[in-house]
Design a protein around this nucleic acid. Sequence first.
DNA 1: ATAGAATGTGACCCAATGGTCATGTGACCG
DNA 2: CGGTCACATGACCATTGGGTCACATTCTAT
Lengths: 213, 213
Amino acid sequence: MPKETFFHLPEDKRNLICQVALDEFATHSFDRASINRIVARAGIAKGSFYQYFENKQDLFRYLLQLIAEEKRNYLAPVLHNPERHDFFTLLRELYRAGIQFAVEHRKYAEIGRRLLASKGTPIYAQVVDEGMPQAYDLFKGLLEKAIARGEVRADIDVEMVVYLIAALNTLLLEYYTEHVTWDYDERMFDTVDRFIDFLKHGLKANESGGVSP
Amino acid sequence: MPKETFFHLPEDKRNLICQVALDEFATHSFDRASINRIVARAGIAKGSFYQYFENKQDLFRYLLQLIAEEKRNYLAPVLHNPERHDFFTLLRELYRAGIQFAVEHRKYAEIGRRLLASKGTPIYAQVVDEGMPQAYDLFKGLLEKAIARGEVRADIDVEMVVYLIAALNTLLLEYYTEHVTWDYDERMFDTVDRFIDFLKHGLKANESGGVSP
DNA sequence: ATAGAATGTGACCCAATGGTCATGTGACCG
DNA sequence: CGGTCACATGACCATTGGGTCACATTCTAT
């Protein structure tokens, strides 16, 4: 985490450094992100950078923290009282909130995506091990309750489905932003609904000859 | 692609260089893979390396070609006569073959995974743009035929489902190798079947109160 | 005004990398 | 045997990066 000196800086200078760094990490993998470029763009001396942050990873962790905090603002309302929704509606809201966060914080989303994709690199091992179990536990808890309430089939492999639901979260965002749009509008609701429909009913044609659901 | 000199080498020397390079690219991202390490481990002079390959990317592309050729051996039998299977059985076979390839060629699988995950890096843009449309077109063709034959719901968003089916291919492998095992045995059939079941029927509990399918 | 603390500076350090190039070696041929 | 060609060699080059450090400047308190 940043040193005291960083927090002594005027706010606009702090923001500038963070914005420049966010740009850099959103544009390049961790390995290719360059402190030389960051300091040049932020207009600070390189030595000063090390007065604010321990090292490159320290900066990166700080940014990840900012990102996580902001994302929490989007997810918290949905998770405020999960019992008020059935499982699929809750999932729909979680996915929707995730997309809203991403389209309103594009750089944050890209940094998160790069981080997840960096599995098998040193930075992943050093930074990621914590946040994942929480997300898994959340989905698992929700799924088990939904099974108990009869909303979700009881004959599924819970671990596998938890894994899928979490992964589909990422997939949905990627599909929407790469194949549909970066706008937060009707199409987003459309796309999320189609994903949820797929999750509910699968692909198989109904054998009675009618349309599935 | 490699220079003539590479193919003049004794076969065992060629194989050694390839094996060492495969190790390197399976262990590190493209950016972190080091030619210095490769030549040291292969016991060749660095200058010699550049007599065999144009540069790092040339070597990488050559390895990718080897990988693609080997993978084709696993997929070709399944795709030999797709009409003999219904859509879900065909998909099951494709997924199964993909896992078999991966567990029998672990390094190849890891290199492929790293490459796909490297979206947003220079190497991805330079190497990947071709292979993807083919895979998409394949899945799309199969899906459209399945819809026409009444095996798959006609009310789905084809583009989206093609995207999902392709992505689930990767997810299935990741889930199996990280959460189940690297062995090619009963559990693999089990896991694939559960994935296919999910694809067919989704998660929603059957409203008539019985078990879904 | 002055001293000390806090902060700013950028040249430098060291390591590592991909790639080059002048030279060396060995096989082959006439 | 000498010349030529194909290949091998590893020191070198240029660049880049993360991080350091001796010095400079600014701020604050007395």
